[in-house]
Simulated assay, not measured.
Amino acid sequence: MYNILPKSFYEQPTLQLAESLLGCLLIKETPEGTASGYIVETEAYLGPEDRAAHSYQNRRTKRTEVMFGEAGFVYTYAMHTHCLVNVVSGPVEKPEAVLIRAVEPYEGIPLMEKRRAKQPRKNWTNGPGKLTKALGITMEDYGHHFTAPPLFLAEGYKPTEIAVGKRVGIENTGEARDYPWRFWVKDNQYVSR
């Protein structure tokens, strides 16, 4: 049913991966059912040299440990009341990641509607905390690999136009806040901003 992306897909440079993820299908299976969406916005975090990355200066904590492993692992973390999901990238011991910022709903529409009750459809998945709620991605997905259920990535479509710009919400990170490491599908209504 799905063409699950192979491990080799994740073994590309982080900025390239952040762009390659656009159009891919993010799928989460839960006891309630399956929900998925096409990735329409990502942000790259280039580890030790990137002041905005959790692994800046090789900061190794219980939270960031998975980032030091091979590419393709799930890195979830809590921010305020939200769970955010990232794809671990970069070579082993070079802790880099790509934040999935927004998806366009694909399957499991009634399930997403229930999870994002009272929200208009365009607000279900147009932000990193919103999409995890809609798809049912939780902190329990941490450390899993994106090549196998219940949380995995599959082939989707190739976007016709990709836009590039500054990352969002990282104001206190010096020059890192201006790096053009955010990628999105141009004119897609589910992009976060």
Rank of each mutant, 00 (worst) to 15 (best):
63 R>P: 00
65 E>L: 07
42 T>A: 04
58 N>H: 14
105 P>K: 12
81 T>L: 12
47 G>M: 09
79 M>G: 02
62 K>Q: 12
86 N>E: 07
62 K>R: 15
86 N>Q: 06
85 V>W: 15
104 E>G: 03
87 V>N: 08
92 V>R: 15
82 H>P: 02
96 E>S: 03
93 E>V: 00
73 F>K: 15
85 V>P: 03
75 Y>L: 06
97 A>G: 10
55 S>Q: 10
93 E>S: 03
78 A>S: 07
66 V>I: 15
109 I>Q: 11
41 E>T: 01
99 L>N: 12
76 T>W: 13
107 E>V: 00
35 A>C: 10
60 R>Y: 13
79 M>I: 15
55 S>H: 12
34 T>G: 02
40 V>P: 06
48 P>R: 15
89 S>V: 03
40 V>I: 11
49 E>N: 10
83 C>G: 01
44 A>C: 03
41 E>W: 06
100 I>L: 12
90 G>K: 12
108 G>H: 11
46 L>C: 13
89 S>G: 10
34 T>M: 06
75 Y>T: 04
55 S>G: 05
92 V>K: 15
72 G>Y: 13
100 I>C: 05
38 Y>C: 01
60 R>D: 05
71 A>L: 08
37 G>M: 00
78 A>V: 08
90 G>Y: 14
44 A>P: 03
54 H>V: 02
103 V>Y: 14
45 Y>Q: 06
70 E>N: 09
107 E>P: 00
30 T>G: 02
38 Y>G: 01
69 G>D: 13
98 V>N: 14
34 T>Y: 02
41 E>F: 02
33 G>D: 03
63 R>N: 01
91 P>C: 03
94 K>N: 12
100 I>K: 08
52 A>L: 09
32 E>S: 01
50 D>R: 08
79 M>S: 09
109 I>D: 13
79 M>E: 09
85 V>A: 11
64 T>A: 07
67 M>W: 15
